[in-house]
Computed example of a mutant assay.
Amino acid sequence: MPDKRQIILKALYRSEGEPVSGVKISEDAGISRVAVWKHIKALKQAGVEIKSLPKGYKLQNADNLLYPFCFPPHLQDKIFYFPELDSTMDQARKIARQGVPHASCVIAEIQTASRGRLNRPWASDRGGLWFTLILKPDLPPPLGWTMNFAASACMSEVLAGLFDLDVRVKWPNDLLLNGRKLSGMLAEIETRADMVNFLFLGIGLNVNNEPESDQYQAISLKTALGKSVSRKQILIRFLDLFESRIKSVDPARIINQWKDRTATIGTEVRVQTHNQVYEGKALDVDDTGALIVKSRDGITRKIIYGDCFHS
C-alpha cells in the first residue's frame, strides 16, 4: 500500500469511529484535499468501508481490518497484509528468506488461485480469513505434522471460546461446524539437511463470507451466528494461543489436545488418497498423526495422508 494511503487509513482507524475531516487528513499526510479524496476512493475500491460525511470521513467496521497497525504491538511485525494475492502460501514462500520472524502471518483479503489438499481449488472470497503462517520450528521433518494438529486444535478452541460453538476437528486438519466444513489447512515443508527449514501452514476460515453451495458442504461463522464477527479478534486469539502451544513440541500432548476436539474418531469414514479409497470406522489417531481405520472386512489400516469424509 502507498505510504500516503496507509497514513490516511491509520488516521481513520485511530479515530475510534469518529469522523476525520479532509483538512486534518490533508495536513497529516502532507497532500492536497483532492489527493486525499483520490486515496479514499482507492481504499473504497480495495474493499475498505469508508463513509463520507459532512464532518469528514468515517471508517466503518474498523474491527474487521487486518492491516499490521490494527494488531497489538507484539504481533505487528509479524503481520503481512495484502488486498489480493494468487495464494498466501506462494507469497509466504517468497518472503520467508527475508528475515521475517517465526510465526509470521501472510494475509490476503482475496485469493485468486488458492488450493487445498491434493491440489483441489479452495474458494477464497472477501470476508473470509485467508492466511499462511511462516514457521521455523526446530523439528525433524517426520514431526512436521504436529504443527497442523496443534493449529487445528487451537483454532477449534478459539472459535468455541469466542462464539460458544461446537467446532470440531476432522482428520487430518479440517474444522467442522454442524457437520459442514468451516476451515481447511494445508502444510508444506521445506527441509535443510535433516531438519525443517520452513513449514508453511495455510489456513482458510469461513468467517463473514458465504461459502454454502450445492457443490461444497461448507458453512461460515456468519451463517451459523446470523451476524458478522471480527476476523481480527479471531486471528489475535489464534496466533497467541498457537505460538504458546508450539514453544515446546510434545507430540503426545498435541495429539491428546487434538483428540479432545475430534469429530473423526469413532465415525464411519471414507479416505481418499491420490490413487486409493479406504472405507471403514476410524478407531484412533496414533502418535505419528496417522488415522487408524478398520474396514468392513475386518482389516485395520494405518493411513498417513488423504482427504477424509465422514459417512
Results as ranks from 00 to 15, higher is better:
3 D>E: 15
6 Q>M: 13
9 L>N: 02
19 P>Y: 02
20 V>N: 03
23 V>K: 08
24 K>W: 03
32 S>W: 05
34 V>H: 07
37 W>P: 00
37 W>V: 10
38 K>T: 13
39 H>D: 13
41 K>V: 03
41 K>W: 06
43 L>V: 04
44 K>A: 08
50 I>D: 00
54 P>R: 04
54 P>N: 07
57 Y>L: 00
58 K>R: 15
62 A>R: 09
62 A>E: 10
66 L>S: 03
68 P>L: 01
69 F>Y: 00
69 F>N: 01
70 C>H: 10
70 C>W: 06
73 P>I: 13
73 P>F: 10
73 P>H: 08
76 Q>P: 03
77 D>N: 14
80 F>I: 03
83 P>I: 04
85 L>I: 01
86 D>W: 07
90 D>C: 02
92 A>I: 07
92 A>P: 09
94 K>V: 12
101 P>W: 12
101 P>F: 09
102 H>G: 00
105 C>D: 04
108 A>F: 09
109 E>H: 13
111 Q>A: 03
116 G>I: 02
117 R>N: 13
117 R>A: 09
118 L>Y: 11
121 P>Y: 05
121 P>G: 08
124 S>I: 01
125 D>Y: 08
128 G>H: 04
129 L>V: 06
135 L>K: 05
135 L>W: 08
136 K>I: 13
139 L>E: 08
140 P>I: 15
141 P>M: 07
142 P>M: 05
148 N>W: 10
149 F>W: 04
150 A>M: 10
155 M>R: 02
155 M>L: 15
160 A>D: 15
162 L>W: 06
162 L>Y: 08
163 F>M: 03
164 D>T: 11
165 L>C: 09
173 N>S: 03
177 L>K: 00
178 N>C: 10
179 G>A: 01
180 R>T: 03
181 K>D: 09
182 L>K: 10
183 S>R: 01
187 A>D: 03
188 E>Q: 03
199 L>Q: 05
210 E>S: 13
211 P>W: 02
214 D>Q: 12
224 A>T: 06
225 L>K: 05
228 S>A: 15
228 S>Q: 15
232 K>N: 00
234 I>G: 00
234 I>F: 06
234 I>E: 09
237 R>L: 12
240 D>N: 09
240 D>Q: 01
243 E>H: 10
243 E>K: 11
244 S>F: 11
245 R>V: 15
247 K>N: 11
249 V>D: 06
249 V>T: 07
251 P>S: 03
252 A>M: 04
256 N>W: 13
258 W>Y: 12
259 K>G: 05
260 D>Q: 15
260 D>Y: 11
263 A>V: 12
267 T>R: 14
271 V>T: 10
276 Q>Y: 11
281 K>M: 14
283 L>V: 06
285 V>K: 00
287 D>A: 08
289 G>I: 04
289 G>N: 01
301 R>H: 14
302 K>G: 06
304 I>V: 14
304 I>A: 14
306 G>F: 01
307 D>A: 06
310 H>Y: 11
311 S>K: 14
